[in-house]
Nucleic acid binder design. Structure first.
Lengths: 232, 232
DNA sequence: ACCTTATTTCGACGATTGTCGTAATTGGCT
DNA sequence: AGCCAATTACGACAATCGTCGAAATAAGGT
């Protein structure tokens, strides 16, 4: 599993239209600062910044190899949290639970860009529109309410919580936000599919949590296709 | 599936101890000459040779990207034979058929190296010991005989037929070689697990097909572990 | 406002890549 | 043996990478 994730990360960086941004995405997913990463791969922090800001447009295979080795080493020292999340993500798509789809974006999107892509309406915390989103999890909200324990909620986040949590079959807009409210880990963005306005309680929860909330009534099949096509 | 295989190839090249050899491996899996590949990615054949022979030790992300795009374009023009094989390979490991394990090696092995790794005895065509082997398929020979049609045999090859076909639960050594004999596509190496000598008929078939044949009596569990550890 | 840490910018320079073109070598086929 | 296609070797050179170090800027906390 470590090898598989390593290969995937290296492949994404190599094939990316913007390897710099992809390296930054993965560093942040692994919860490392540039200074921390620099220590793992024995270079100065300014070199890490040079890579991520695009000063070097096509890093060599040795650089990619050392980058991946560094973030994996950090994960190993912490007990493999990201590797475990990745495995959980693969597993949760296989069973017949509430998770409808879950992917990481090749290229990070902002909340505003995501909103635009799914023809949504951002009804709460519009000022947080620049929030970076690294992936999404689509959840059948009815099944989620019936089946998920509070621990299960953690499994919705895959490799990072900096993602969009998308609830389908929403009625009033409060239940998903209540669930987010009591959850220890918060997503970057909440999307509610099936309604075009939320009630007052939902709005107040959203403002208190400072999480952008997007509503969309796009047909679910098209929604999934649009999401799959994002961040390329 | 195309994206997934692309990412995997790019990741393997990036992370390889020897990116040159890994690029050559994948070019050969896709059945392209250096001259053909050069046309797809708009460089001269000598540049392709420079990459693959290690003159350039750490290709950049742009080079890897163009390499992968080239081999994928070639596969697309031929109707995706390699992509389909890759998909078949993933699928056949999921069901409860005769396939016990199937992997590609990160780094190609020779038949002799493989023989050594599994503590085997090469009883036929020792002069072909330098044959390159890119992966392996482990097959329960009893189930294979009972379940496989001649078309199913093709599914044993995954991304390339230049691999080791490994039969377990072998008794006399002739049945697997008969199966190979009547098959249109031949593996690079045949391994028979469970015997330490083959009968005359088996030997004659092997000599006629010019395929190295290895016998091993290693415990199956250790055999699988050894195979997984090969080509790193 | 101040302090500390993180990040970014950028000059500089040695190392390496990417590529062409030419020629030599290898391998397969007749 | 000869021919042809594929592959390899290699000189050459422009472009880019990899990295350091110093300084500037940004962000978070008090």
């Amino acid at each position: 599993m470590v090898d598989e994730l390593s290969t995937r990360i290296a492949g994404e960086i190599s094939l990316s239209e913007n390897p710099s941004k992809t390296m930054k995405k993965w560093r942040e997913i692994f919860g490392l600062s540039q200074t921390e990463l620099a220590r793992y791969i024995h270079i100065t922090p300014s070199v890490v910044s040079d890579y991520e800001s695009g000063r070097r447009k096509a890093p060599g295979a040795n650089t990619i190899k050392r980058f991946v080795a560094g973030i994996m080493k950090a994960d190993a020292e912490r007990g493999y949290p990201v590797v475990k999340s990745y495995r959980t993500m693969l597993t949760s798509l296989d069973d017949d639970g509430p998770v409808v789809d879950m992917q990481d974006f090749k290229m990070p999107l902002s909340a505003a860009e995501l909103c635009h892509a799914i023809e949504g309406d951002m009804v709460a915390n519009r000022d947080k529109g620049s929030t970076a989103v690294y992936g999404y999890t689509v959840v059948d909200s009815i099944k989620a309410i019936l089946e998920l324990s509070s621990d299960d909620f953690l499994n919705l986040y895959g490799t990072t919580s900096q993602r969009a949590l998308i609830f389908t079959k929403v009625s009033y807009g409060r239940s998903p936000l209540i669930a987010v409210r009591v959850s220890r880990i918060k997503p970057g963005v909440v999307v509610m599919h099936g309604i075009d306005k939320i009630d007052d309680l939902g709005m107040r929860i959203a403002e208190r949590e400072r999480i952008p909330v997007i509503l969309t009534v796009m047909e679910q099949k098209r929604l999934l296709e649009r999401l799959r096509g994002c961040g390329r």
